[in-house]
Amino acid sequence: MHQTEIHLAPGVPDIGALWATSFEDLMGLGGALVGEQRGCVVRETPRQKVLRLPLPGTSDDGARPGEAPRGAGTGWIFLTRYGAGRLAECLAARLSQPRSSSFAARQWNLLCHLRKHGVGTPELLAMGEVTRPLFSKRSFLVTRALDSMQPLPEWLARHPAPLARRRAGRAIGLTLARIHSAGVHLPNLKATHLFLASASVAESPVEGDSLQGDALQGDALQGDALQGNTCAAQQIAARLPKKSAHPGKFRRLPEVSLASARGARIDSALSPSTQLDSLRQLFISLEAALQPSPREAYGVFLLALGRRLSRPERRRLWNQLTSSGAMKLTP
């Protein structure tokens, strides 16, 4: 019989705070969790099942009288159960950075790495896997839902004013710059993967986003080991630099979080062309009514990857971006 491992974030006292008594409960092998009665299945494929359910003590119209929190706070969570993937997917998760022993550990490591570099992500609560010599065929990941935020398309539809769109574009550009600075490639980036909140955070220069003086402990990549749990309890906005390097241009920008790192990998030598692919995928995924104007798109482009390039290289990449079949923009 194979052993199992469960890793909990500092703010989660035990798996009872997640309705469970065992690894099997969280994998759905021992029947449905109590919280599933009030939740729903968000996505289900032969290799993955994602459920949205409340933490104990979360109130809504269906809350049972006397229900109390169990130490992890209240609110809604996502429970992702991973099964056996394709051989190519398993090899990629095992052999490319961050090398991980399961699909759940891969997501945990990627999100921890991004949070360490100042990128907002869902709060990590728990991860578990069946221990295997090479790669686990069963694992789960629990994250807190971004309920106070909206997907980018929904946010843009609710905030059509030009000033709001410009500030959103600037916040997204800075977020993409931090992602690129962290060496993370997002080949499947879509507009629905970026969540924005109306609450604002101070604008900060990319050069000051490495947070080396305030780095999370225990998160550095070490082989294929699961990264430290300390990142789960951090509030990214509180850790960003409080002052802009350009006081005259200080603004309040929407908070941005990356909801999914599916298919991502860490590569310290990301080329500008590879970074451009993520930006292209983001723009293409927006419906026509929400597509950025040429000026808005160029502003995001400059912040995301253009400012550190020479003028000829910047022009070449911009032309490459605008000449793609799904985009017809001119600066």
Score class of each variant (00 low, 15 high):
residue 270 L to F: 04
residue 281 Q to W: 07
residue 245 A to M: 15
residue 261 A to V: 10
residue 287 E to R: 05
residue 251 R to Q: 15
residue 289 A to G: 03
residue 249 K to Y: 12
residue 260 S to I: 00
residue 283 F to V: 09
residue 253 L to H: 04
residue 300 V to W: 02
residue 251 R to F: 15
residue 239 R to D: 09
residue 252 R to E: 09
residue 254 P to Q: 05
residue 249 K to E: 15
residue 245 A to P: 01
residue 268 S to L: 05
residue 269 A to C: 10
residue 229 N to H: 13
residue 295 R to W: 14
residue 250 F to G: 12
residue 247 P to Q: 07
residue 282 L to P: 01
residue 275 Q to W: 03
residue 258 L to F: 10
residue 251 R to Y: 11
residue 267 D to R: 07
residue 248 G to P: 03
residue 278 S to G: 04
residue 291 Q to S: 11
residue 297 A to S: 15
residue 271 S to A: 13
residue 267 D to W: 04
residue 297 A to W: 00
residue 263 G to Q: 07
residue 265 R to V: 13
residue 291 Q to T: 00
residue 261 A to P: 02
residue 243 K to M: 04
residue 243 K to D: 04
residue 260 S to L: 02
residue 234 Q to E: 14
residue 289 A to S: 13
residue 284 I to C: 00
residue 290 L to K: 09
residue 239 R to Q: 09
residue 230 T to V: 07
residue 275 Q to G: 10
residue 232 A to E: 06
residue 254 P to C: 06
residue 242 K to T: 06
residue 296 E to F: 05
residue 298 Y to S: 11
residue 276 L to I: 03
residue 292 P to W: 00
residue 268 S to V: 15
residue 287 E to Y: 04
residue 286 L to E: 09
residue 284 I to M: 03
residue 253 L to M: 08
residue 237 A to C: 09
residue 287 E to F: 03
residue 273 S to F: 11
residue 279 L to T: 08
residue 278 S to F: 02
residue 282 L to M: 00
residue 231 C to E: 13
residue 259 A to I: 03
residue 274 T to V: 14
residue 287 E to M: 13
residue 265 R to H: 15
residue 231 C to L: 10
residue 291 Q to Y: 05
residue 239 R to N: 08
residue 275 Q to V: 00
residue 281 Q to L: 01
residue 287 E to D: 14
residue 256 V to C: 06
residue 262 R to P: 00
residue 284 I to P: 00
residue 243 K to E: 02
residue 261 A to S: 12
residue 294 P to K: 09
residue 291 Q to V: 05
residue 293 S to D: 10
residue 294 P to T: 04
residue 292 P to V: 02
residue 284 I to K: 02
residue 237 A to T: 11
residue 263 G to H: 12
residue 295 R to G: 11
residue 279 L to C: 05
residue 247 P to R: 02
residue 283 F to Q: 00
residue 260 S to Y: 03
residue 299 G to H: 05
residue 268 S to P: 11
residue 237 A to M: 06
residue 299 G to D: 12
residue 282 L to F: 04
residue 281 Q to P: 01
residue 260 S to G: 05
residue 279 L to H: 00
residue 296 E to D: 07
residue 231 C to V: 08
residue 285 S to I: 11
residue 287 E to A: 10
residue 251 R to I: 10
residue 281 Q to K: 14
residue 263 G to P: 03
residue 231 C to G: 09
residue 284 I to N: 04
residue 286 L to M: 12
residue 250 F to D: 13
residue 271 S to C: 15
